[in-house]
Amino acid sequence: MSSIPPEDTIPEGDDLIAAEYVLGVLPAEERRVVARRIETDQAFARLVARWQQHFDPLNEQFVAEPAPGDLKNRIDHRLFGTEQPPASIPLWNSVTFWRGLAFAAFALAVFGFGRDLIQPPTTTSSPQLVASMVADGSPVRTLAVFDDQTRLLKVSLVAGDVPQDRSLELWLIAGNEAPVSLGVITSPQVTAFDLPQPVADKLRDGTTLAITVEPVGGSPSGAPTGAVVAAGTVRGI
């Protein structure tokens, strides 16, 4: 190839520096210089972007691995100085958001349970119910996803922890009926609740899910006794 110089000379040029930056082989100081240049030199930034596109397919080879459960809290603490949930969820009506939520919870479920326990992939046409549970002033944030086919309600703790000396109990509240206990959250990541058909039937758009703090093992009376640390409405997507 005419554009490739003889074997004994180092080929030069911005395009190769861009490639080396994307590849990652440069030493620290050169990387800093190049990184600054990307910020200020648009033509050069385009060269970098083009090389990044070329190498993007290799990204498939990075094997996903769930991060430790408390890491998000640490990030929130650094960014917001608090572990409180946001005051409101302006995304409430965004279909993309809810699909993302369902995906996210499903992804957590996959990592939480291992692939063996995951049912055959649900078809995209299968209706899914999701709920995001939060409460003002509470550190607990959870996502719940119900799979109609397996009747499994998978609840992921996004933030907050399972307390040592108490239990977090999950409740279903349909309309004006009394709360029905679905069980206690046992995992700091994902807990699956196998819902009996009569209970599953009550889980539909508009049903409320709530989590309360109860004595270890759950409320002895069968009705919630402790503070609500998270609650949310079920949505169909």
């Binding site: 990075f62 094997v63 996903a64 691995e65 769930p66 991060a67 890491l71 998000k72 990030i75 917001f80 949930p85 946001p86 969820i89 302006p90 995304l91 958001f97 993302g100 939520l101 995906f103 996210a104 919870a105 992804a107 957590l108 990592f111 995001s132 944030r141 996502l143 992921s156 996004v158 933030a159």
Partner: peptide
């Protein structure tokens, strides 16, 4: 500055990025 979106973004992408960091 939508924190709920940040939560979902983290939940959906952190495993992949953690894989990058580990490797």
């Amino acid at each position: 500055r939508d924190r709920a979106a940040f939560d979902v973004l983290y939940a959906s992408t952190s495993a992949k990025l953690f894989g990058v960091c580990l490797r």
